[in-house]
Structures are given as C-alpha cells and as structure tokens.
C-alpha cells in the first residue's frame, strides 16, 4: 500500500515549531560535565613520574622541571596534537591531571598551540 505525501503532514506541522538548530557561536552549546576537553594540571601533587608522557598516543604532553625549584613540575601540552582521549588522566597515579569543559581551542598559528597548563 503506497501513499503520496506520507511525510507531508509532519512537514507542515514542523513549519510552526522552533528550529532544531542552535545559533552557535552566538548561543554557546553546553557540554556534559565529564566532557573530555582541555587538560588542567595540579602542580602541587605531580611527582614527575612521566607516565602521562609515556601513555599519550599523540605525544601531546610533556612534564618538565621548574627551573630553580625542588620537585616542582609543569605540564606542557601541544593542543594541536592532543586527541582528547584523557588516557593521561586515567593513568596519572596522583590524579594531577583532569579534563575541563573547554573545547574552543582552535588557533591561527601552529607555534601558539603549545601551552603550559
């Protein structure tokens, strides 16, 4: 049994409903709480074991010693390489790394994509 215009009633009804699309970037889309976005680093608990560097599939994170200070480390993240899998967060034995909801991380120059978090 075939009908002409089976989809027509729905199409007409949809004319009077709100658009399904969102006006991004004017209206910001909220991401989930445990969204895997830009990394956050807690330098107070990091012990510099470098497990995060070893597990990273994209060679995106390195841990460096802070000059002139004992047992103090900083994390350098290549935002252009990071694939946001958050394996480093899972593997960190001291929970020094965590993901945030920041996702608008595009830039215009490759040189600017390496940041200290």
């Amino acid at each position: 049994m075939s009908k002409i215009g089976k989809i027509l009633p729905v199409a007409l009804k949809t004319l009077f409903t709100k658009p399904s699309t969102e006006a991004y970037p004017y209206v910001k889309k909220l991401v989930e709480d445990d969204f895997r976005g830009k990394l956050e680093f807690n330098c107070d608990v990091c012990i510099g074991c470098n497990i995060c560097t070893r597990v990273c599939p994209a060679k995106a994170i390195t841990i460096e010693k802070v000059e002139g200070e004992e047992k103090k480390f900083k994390a350098i993240v290549h935002l252009d390489r990071c694939i946001y899998c958050a394996q480093c967060v899972d593997s960190c034995p001291k929970k020094a790394l965590k993901t945030t909801q920041a996702f608008e991380l595009a830039g215009f120059e490759t040189g600017n994509m390496t940041v200290e978090v």
């Binding site: 989930e32 445990d34 969204f35 895997r36 899998c85 899972d90």
Partner: peptide
C-alpha cells in the same frame, strides 16, 4: 553518547580489560 562517554564521536569508552566509565 555524549552523556555516557563524554564525546559525541570517538567515545573512548573501551580500555583493555573493560570499560572506562
């Protein structure tokens, strides 16, 4: 999928020996 895994695509739910979330 975004709610369950954190991402719309490339969910990253699997890990060797189970699931992550």
């Amino acid at each position: 999928l975004a709610m369950l895994t954190g991402n719309r695509v490339n969910y990253g739910i699997n890990t060797i020996g189970g699931v992550r979330r």
